[in-house]
Design a binder for these strands. Sequence first.
DNA 1: CGATCGATGATTGCATACAGTATTCTGCAT
DNA 2: ATGCAGAATACTGTATGCAATCATCGATCG
Lengths: 236, 236
Amino acid sequence: MPATPAVTARGPITRPVPLRQAVYDALTELIINGSLKPGQHLVEADLAEELGVSRQPIREALQRLHTAGWVDLRPSQGAFVHSPTTEECSQLLSVRALLETRSARDAARHATPPDVARLWELQRAGVTALATGDARAIVEANADLHGHITLLSRNAVLAELIPQVDRRVRWYYMPIAKPRGQDAWNEHALIIDAIAHGDPDLAEELMRRHTRNTTDFYCEQIAAVTGSADLRGDLP
Amino acid sequence: MPATPAVTARGPITRPVPLRQAVYDALTELIINGSLKPGQHLVEADLAEELGVSRQPIREALQRLHTAGWVDLRPSQGAFVHSPTTEECSQLLSVRALLETRSARDAARHATPPDVARLWELQRAGVTALATGDARAIVEANADLHGHITLLSRNAVLAELIPQVDRRVRWYYMPIAKPRGQDAWNEHALIIDAIAHGDPDLAEELMRRHTRNTTDFYCEQIAAVTGSADLRGDLP
DNA sequence: CGATCGATGATTGCATACAGTATTCTGCAT
DNA sequence: ATGCAGAATACTGTATGCAATCATCGATCG
């Protein structure tokens, strides 16, 4: 078979994106950016008209949003945008810290030189974003860096779980939490260094401190707004 | 209205269970007990007829099965029972150990005397099942005990994540892994004791050993069957 | 004889229609 | 004014129908 010449396309081909997937993406976006507020009743017919599709893809997307924790699905009553409690957020932070600490450890065990180079690349992108002061770019760069570390852990289960937890954390803290800035990226550099040297113990410990600092920072922001009690919960 | 006398029901009232939920439960059961084999193509129309419902609830259940990792959903081609790889199982075991270790620690911080009493109750049930030699009862008792520890961690996120991971692990190893027997339940007793004494460090360490032993046992079983290489992967 | 192309059947994706149930509004009696 | 009863309304849950797409098989051509 000498054929299949000069196929420049990336991916198998341009698959027609299933409508339910587009709906899922659209709704998550609407929830994250606040167009759909916590507790709001999501009426299928309205969403269907809004997005120009029938109720069927809407329902399928709502199923996925439910299992992902974005909406609550009360039988015979419909879907409601999930309202996170402070306890839940504390727990999300705690679990995220646990998973990311582990992924850092495994990343240090598996990372190759090209992997590390890619990490430094993302690190530079983050520092650049930090210099320009573009808050959105900073958050995104941070997510990219952490996401790539989870990839390097070579653990598909981890890489599947972490983003779910992470996105929900970021969604909840988005309105109140300013990016941590320089400190966070200094810590990133230390972690990358540990990964580059293949030192699992050090990478784990550094990531533990990093997530702890991030959590503390978030909790201070929350406390400043709500004047509430201790949110740090069960962090180690 | 003199009627509705002597309402013995618990909960609000007897809610009519949504059909999609029944379908979801039925399909997971069929997958776990092997009626639906890995890789098998799940034709919506067939399932609908089999279960006596229309395609609509089937589709919604398949969405949930997909996000839970039970089936793969290939666009325009339908649903296929997920085929776990040995790598994936190793990763599942690894993540499960991580999460359960943490839940044991938090359980030790939060458990009340009634909670501990309930744990001992479950422990006794497990030992009884062990004595009778009923393999299915043993596996179930084990899941109950671990599940209750996750509840005691007072972390809803953990309690949500662990069962998903745990069920998939048990499903894959079911055909080849004999229950570990007495050793596992001795270790359980030590863990419960640590929780009862409110000793997080000890509970964490004991659970770490316990999950490590369980993983080792499973891996030996696997190796004996497949004659494969090291599966222990990234356990600490 | 092998390979490519086209036709056919099966299956999914989406839309629509109908039935059951929870909520809300209105009217009346207290 | 307040509480309750009843109907009207709105929404979800389920079923069915149709068009688009994919896999399979057979025929034709090199």
